[in-house]
């Protein structure tokens, strides 16, 4: 029968020669390659101490941004949740009280905002859907954990602290022409 790729090989049970039968040359050959790697530069880094530089478009853990006055930008419009293909986002909205104007930018805000990091596929569609430039994916990594509950990130983990802003300016550079 004509082979499809012409790469098939006929299996033959060839009898080994004496040198092949004693195995030692093959073993020493392998050891030589291993030994050579001892003196080469390491390809890995010691992760928590040393970190590799990430691409500016790397999509890691989310952040909920605050505006320049420190008020939360998210208005709980639900567009990120409806865009999310993994259905990882859920939220409950609430109405802002008159004395909370410095906390929330809009009349409506997210009373709870949760992302299930086990469901999240880090596609970035939430960031694209957000009309208020509130949610961004950053170059931070979601830490591992032994408990499933710890992967449900609420507002306390997602909203950036007022005094430690998370820089997302590199992500906002748009390369497409206006």
């Amino acid at each position: 029968m004509q082979s499809l790729t012409n790469r098939s090989k006929l299996v033959v049970n060839k009898k080994m020669t004496f040198w092949e039968r004693i195995y030692l040359p093959a073993i020493f050959g392998g050891m030589r390659i291993t030994l050579r790697h001892f003196f080469k530069k390491n390809k890995t880094v010691n992760y928590p101490e040393v970190k590799r530089p990430f691409s500016p478009v790397y999509r890691g853990m989310h952040v909920l941004k605050r505006d320049e006055n420190g008020a939360e930008r998210c208005t709980a419009c639900g567009l990120c949740a409806v865009a999310c293909p993994a259905e990882a986002i859920s939220m409950v909205a609430a109405e802002r009280k008159p004395d909370q104007a410095h906390l929330y930018r809009e009349e409506k805000y997210a009373a709870t905002y949760e992302i299930n990091m086990l469901r999240c596929i880090f596609c970035g569609l939430c960031e694209e859907a957000c009309p208020k430039e509130a949610i961004f994916l950053t170059d931070r990594i979601v830490p591992a954990s032994l408990e499933r509950e710890e992967f449900i990130y609420g507002k306390e983990k997602l909203v950036e602290p007022v005094d430690q802003r998370i820089d997302i300016s590199l992500r906002q550079i748009k390369s497409y022409p206006q």
Partner: peptide, 9 residues
């Protein structure tokens, strides 16, 4: 129904 949910949910 004010701010309770969004209609598409």
């Amino acid at each position: 129904f004010r701010f309770k949910s969004r209609v598409w949910f």
